Amino acid sequence: MLELKDVHVSYGNIAAVKGLSLTVNEGEIVTLIGSNGAGKSTTLRTISGLLRPKKGQVTFEGKAIQGMPADRIVNLGIAQSPEGRRIFPRMTVAENLDLGAFLRKDKAAVAEDMEAMLELFPRLRERLHQKAGTMSGGEQQMLAVARAQMTRPKLLLLDEPSMGLAPVLVDLIFATIRRIREQGTTVMVVEQNARAALSIADRAYVLESGSLKLEGAARDLRNDPEITKAYLGG
């Protein structure tokens, strides 16, 4: 479904991603793990069109998308829930969800998807007419994921979905990611909570200083002594 080949991304003279190649197959949950500054978020922003690679190719369903405007990439079926949630705090939950479907014309289907999101995140139904900025961090994260899902993506990119959340909410978010995949959406997760990410992923890529260090089945990496020592607190 998604393939990166020898992708290089820089911020000015600073190389953030160095020759990264990876694939995401339809129906998978794939995670990128690594420490701060490893290039994880930069990779997602490049896939979603917010950054242009200096070199390399990004293809989605066989089509080259590197350098394509972000709104066109959304139309192709890629949506991102960004790091830090980036919800619209002065708008209601309902208005935030409506904005997620801004590019869609199928009003009846949008209404169905709105209802599906409220079933997926019952807390949002209780807060539907509340200003998003007045909600808790966990509720805002639910809204950010639901808003991205309102585009009806084929591939959902999640950037640090557990950041700043209490452990019980982390469990809820990751259980929900599993449900999203079960409902037919392929998921790519960038996450510093490596243990949680590896517990739900099919495959994982480990980035270090912008380069690919390890890749493999998430189960295998979870049991890798090097990964345990570096990322799982073992």
Rank of each mutant, 00 (worst) to 15 (best):
2 L>Y: 09
24 V>Q: 13
229 K>C: 03
18 K>D: 06
124 L>M: 04
88 F>N: 02
130 Q>Y: 00
30 V>Y: 04
85 R>C: 12
88 F>W: 02
218 A>M: 03
190 V>Q: 13
9 V>E: 04
63 K>H: 06
170 V>I: 14
176 T>V: 07
122 P>F: 08
176 T>A: 10
149 Q>I: 12
172 L>G: 02
130 Q>C: 05
173 I>Y: 10
220 D>N: 14
205 Y>L: 03
52 R>M: 01
48 S>C: 15
52 R>W: 11
62 G>M: 02
207 L>G: 02
190 V>Y: 12
167 P>T: 08
3 E>S: 12
170 V>N: 13
97 L>G: 06
157 L>G: 09
63 K>D: 07
51 L>Y: 10
88 F>G: 01
3 E>L: 07
59 T>M: 06
225 P>Q: 08
223 N>Y: 07
214 L>N: 04
149 Q>G: 09
174 F>H: 07
122 P>Q: 10
113 D>V: 02
136 S>D: 03
144 A>Y: 11
134 T>G: 06
58 V>M: 10
166 A>F: 14
203 R>K: 11
196 A>K: 08
221 L>R: 00
177 I>M: 15
201 A>C: 09
115 E>S: 11
206 V>A: 01
97 L>Y: 04
74 V>L: 11
208 E>G: 03
55 K>Y: 15
204 A>K: 04
221 L>A: 05
7 V>E: 07
79 A>D: 07
10 S>G: 03
190 V>H: 14
84 G>C: 10
217 A>H: 07
2 L>M: 08
3 E>G: 05
63 K>S: 05
197 A>Q: 02
93 V>C: 01
195 R>V: 02
192 Q>A: 01
136 S>Y: 03
177 I>V: 15
106 D>F: 05
45 R>A: 02
199 S>G: 11
74 V>Q: 02
105 K>Y: 00
188 M>K: 11
199 S>T: 10
15 A>W: 01
187 V>I: 08
34 G>V: 12
40 K>N: 00
88 F>V: 01
148 A>Q: 09
217 A>N: 13
227 I>T: 08
1 M>G: 00
131 K>D: 08
220 D>S: 13
200 I>K: 14
40 K>L: 02
161 P>D: 08
184 G>H: 05
56 G>P: 09
223 N>I: 03
33 I>S: 00
185 T>W: 03
161 P>M: 05
206 V>G: 00
203 R>Y: 04
39 G>R: 03
116 A>S: 09
19 G>P: 07
65 I>R: 02
109 A>C: 03
24 V>M: 09
